[in-house]
Design a protein around this nucleic acid. Structure first.
Lengths: 178, 178
DNA sequence: GCAAATGTAAAACGTTCGTTTTACATATAT
DNA sequence: ATATATGTAAAACGAACGTTTTACATTTGC
């Protein structure tokens, strides 16, 4: 059964990369079997279906992302985000992208998106509260928008977008602290 | 020839809506012929191909968007953005979405995206310069990130994302002015 | 050492894709 | 009035889609 975990995680990792680089729908199962170096029979035994595979990719991605942003200050949040973008590439949020590609017509996936974005918003609230020493929902919303903006502006402006977001957040935090 | 313009623009408008609501790749040509109420023969005479139709949709969308943000202050920019999202819906940027769906493998489309985002960034620079009375590239980058953030956070947070972005921008502009 | 499990390679499933073609109807211009 | 342009409805194209199946090889547990 150890092999199962190996094969399954290799499959999910391969799927994540292909979905990210070429799009969810544009990535065919044939391409995936080739890239993951396994037969379609094995692939379907482990993944179930393309939709389930997409959901599995989102689950793993979300977990990895949330783990990355276990920080205690807004500035550290943007530092973590910069690392993330540097390591994972700057092709936008895989959750919002799958939402756009499916139009929200797949409940299984829509729920994964909603859960992730809710968790992310909550996490930002907590980081802001930790940084300030008290809750500040207005600032948290601003920081959330800056994160989302950095991630998406980075698609065409690169990591400069992150620098801009980070400096803006610093100003907003300093103002909120006084 | 008047009929051509009519049919072509009806086709492009229909395509824009379907692409926006269901995704570019997931929207089939059959669905488009039905929604635009024309035969596939006519559709192809006017659109050329699906790729050309996607490019045409982007061109029209970009023109309409840029026209909407012909404003002279940062605050007015976010007001215009709010109107845009209210009228057009909150499903993310159609340019970044097509980029994600195609993975940048269609030169015709990649260039349309690049051109639009460059124009947008330039426009934001101009608005900031007009508002402040002088250029301020750093602030302009921050405002750009806030716009992109508002557009994408609005997908799951609605127009509250815009309120957050707008208030953040107001603080940054006030600070830059002093 | 044998049976169950798990793998592969590859063909086949029916469906849908983007696109073209066929056959025919309807306006319009001279 | 007739030729040209432009439309429709619908069948057909080959290719690609997600998925299943067939036939066979390899590992693994008892």
């Amino acid at each position: 059964m150890i092999h199962d975990i190996d094969k399954t995680s290799r499959l999910i990792a391969t799927a994540e990369e292909l979905f990210d680089r070429h799009g969810y729908i544009a990535t065919g199962m044939d391409r995936l079997t080739e890239a993951a170096d396994m037969s379609s029979r094995t692939l379907y035994k482990h993944a179930g279906s393309k939709t389930q595979l997409m959901a599995a990719v989102l689950a793993h991605r979300g977990q990895r992302f949330m783990h990355r942003i276990e920080v205690e200050s807004v500035d550290a949040l943007f530092a973590a985000l910069e690392e993330w973008l540097q390591v994972e590439g700057q092709r936008g949020c895989l959750f919002l992208r799958v939402q756009g590609e499916t139009g929200g017509s797949t409940p299984e996936i829509s729920e994964a998106i909603k859960a992730h974005k809710t968790a992310f918003a909550t996490r930002v609230q907590e980081i802001v509260a930790t940084d300030l020493g008290q809750e500040n929902p207005v600032l948290a919303n601003q920081v959330l928008v800056l994160c989302e903006g950095a991630i998406h502006a980075a698609i065409y402006r690169g990591l400069d977008a992150l620098t801009a977001a980070r400096s803006a957040a610093a100003i907003l935090v300093a103002r909120a602290r006084s």
